[in-house]
């Protein structure tokens, strides 16, 4: 099963690379914000899978829990910041 988790983590990292295309060439600023969110979601799952690969699930669960909450709060802060500054 460890090889399966490693394969899934590699596939997800490859998907992250594809999402970075939009982050670099995204026409508008807010496309770059979504790509940050999308990359964050995939990294969350890769973190959990790393917990299995390194056999330290109790540590990695806390890391990914924190990562999920911070990524959610980050998206909210992006939303609130851009309305006031009108950067878009």
């Amino acid at each position: 099963m460890d090889n399966f988790f490693l394969a899934i983590a590699l596939v997800l990292s490859f998907l992250v690379l594809i999402c970075l295309y939009r982050a670099v060439f995204g026409p508008t600023v807010i496309d770059r914000i979504i790509s940050v969110g999308v990359v964050g979601t995939k990294t969350l799952i890769v973190l959990l899978l790393m917990g299995f690969i390194y056999k330290r699930m109790d540590m990695f669960v806390d890391i990914s829990l924190l990562y999920a909450i911070l990524s959610f709060i980050g998206a909210l802060i992006f939303a609130k910041y851009f309305v006031r500054k009108g950067v878009l």
Binding site: I34, G37, F72, L76
Partner: peptide
């Protein structure tokens, strides 16, 4: 984590969409 993201994902998406629409 799954339940939190099930609630938080759409909320974050809505916040971003709302700010994008309000900024034109």
């Amino acid at each position: 984590i799954a339940v939190f993201w099930f609630l938080g994902g759409p909320t974050a998406t809505h916040a971003l969409l709302n700010s994008a629409f309000n900024s034109g």
